[in-house]
Design a protein around this nucleic acid. Structure first.
Length: 109
DNA sequence: CCGTTGACCATAA
DNA sequence: CTTATGGCCAACG
């Protein structure tokens, strides 16, 4: 715990680690991931880290915004891919949004 | 080193 | 429901 690397990998890996903790069939928001990564309020950093992400070891598709919708621009093919991957895990999208009350991943309750 | 940007969030109107 | 504003902080040019 004392090792505090200022390398960008430290910040990114911390976020990626939190994303990896999201179980299949559940979705989490950027804010929740930020909080799980130990950076409450730094939701934007999560988005930034995921944008820079280039690894298949991280289920980035389980991360959506707090509205339950996909934040990626539709111009990017990943948006459609994300929805496809989530639906494959059992997440239902209605009106282009998933119900965070059901599929949202919460550490408590 | 400074200014701009960004896969966001909460609140207000 | 939509639109606007402030905040938060790292990465980039």
């Amino acid at each position: 715990m004392t090792e505090r690397r200022r390398d960008r990998t430290s910040t990114y890996e911390r976020i990626w680690a939190a994303v990896r903790k999201i179980p299949a069939g559940r979705v989490s928001s950027y804010g929740l991931v930020a909080r799980a990564a130990g950076m409450p309020g730094h939701a934007r950093l999560v988005g930034y880290a995921l944008h820079a992400l280039d690894s298949d070891d991280v289920p980035w598709h389980r991360v959506i915004n707090n509205r339950g919708a996909i934040s990626l621009p539709e111009a990017d093919g990943r948006a459609a891919l994300q929805r496809t991957l989530l639906e494959a895990e059992g997440v239902v999208f209605e009106g282009g949004r998933a119900d965070l009350m059901r599929f949202g991943w919460y550490m408590d309750g």
